[in-house]
């Protein structure tokens, strides 16, 4: 029997973890709470379709369940979940090279506030760049840059959380983000998105 949403909503992350360890049904609270954000992240990082992303997320949650006692409460639960999901997504991406070839991600469904700051930081001649074009550029970036851009500007995680997800020092997060923005500018100048004019330097 699944736990009612109302009961789940009243519990903190830590309480959900504690209760899930005693009664597995409470694990569904965790899944329901984080599924939308994590599923979106899996689709963005892998370029997988809805079904593929759901499979990856299911596998990731099985790993989360297996490792639930290893969760360190000193870290945000969301960061820990993102870490496991990220690792699972990257493994899946390596196994399944067909991911991303026919990207079906509906990028337009989410345009977080921070994305506008990314647009203003990327120096292009063209203003009011459509989100679709930006997503096309992001998808062209090498994985290590793509993941920091996605975590920072699309998932809106802070540096500390990104450091916990990718298991790198915060200083490295900052450096990598800076390089990623430069790479994005370069990509924007050299790779016009479909039906878009090339942006001149």
């Amino acid at each position: 029997m699944l736990i009612a949403s109302k009961i789940c909503d009243e519990l903190t992350d830590q309480e959900v973890v504690d209760r899930a360890l005693r009664e597995v049904d409470y694990f569904s609270c965790l899944y329901e709470r984080y599924e939308p954000a994590l599923l979106r992240y899996v689709r963005r990082i892998t370029g997988a379709g809805q079904d593929g992303a759901e499979d990856i997320l299911q596998d990731a949650f099985i790993k989360i369940w297996r490792n639930l006692r290893g969760y360190d409460p000193g870290m945000k639960l969301s960061s820990w979940l993102y870490r496991i999901v990220h690792n699972e997504a990257i493994s899946a991406l390596r196994r399944q090279t067909s991911f991303g070839k026919n990207r079906t991600v509906d990028w337009a469904d989410a345009e977080p506030l921070l994305l506008h700051s990314l647009l203003s930081e990327v120096e292009t001649e063209e203003k009011n760049i459509p989100a679709e074009q930006l997503h096309h550029w992001v998808s062209q970036l090498p994985q290590k840059y793509r993941e920091v851009i996605l975590l920072r500007y699309f998932e809106e995680l802070d540096y500390e959380a990104i450091s916990d997800v990718l298991q790198i020092p915060e200083g490295t997060v900052a450096t990598r983000l800076n390089r990623a923005r430069k790479a994005l500018e370069k990509t924007a100048r050299s790779t016009p998105a479909p039906n878009q004019k090339k942006i001149r330097p």
């Binding site: 699944l2 360890l21 597995v24 049904d25 694990f27 569904s28 899944y31 329901e32 599924e35 759901e54 997320l57 299911q58 949650f61 099985i62 369940w65 297996r66 490792n67 639930l68 006692r69 290893g70």
Partner: peptide, 24 residues
């Protein structure tokens, strides 16, 4: 729903969280 499927999968496959002593 998918949450339900996940919990059912855990139950049917008898998947248990790793014991605490392994982490310690």
């Amino acid at each position: 729903n998918t949450a339900h499927k996940l919990v059912e999968q855990i139950k049917s496959r008898h998947i248990e969280p790793r014991p605490q002593w392994q982490y310690t």
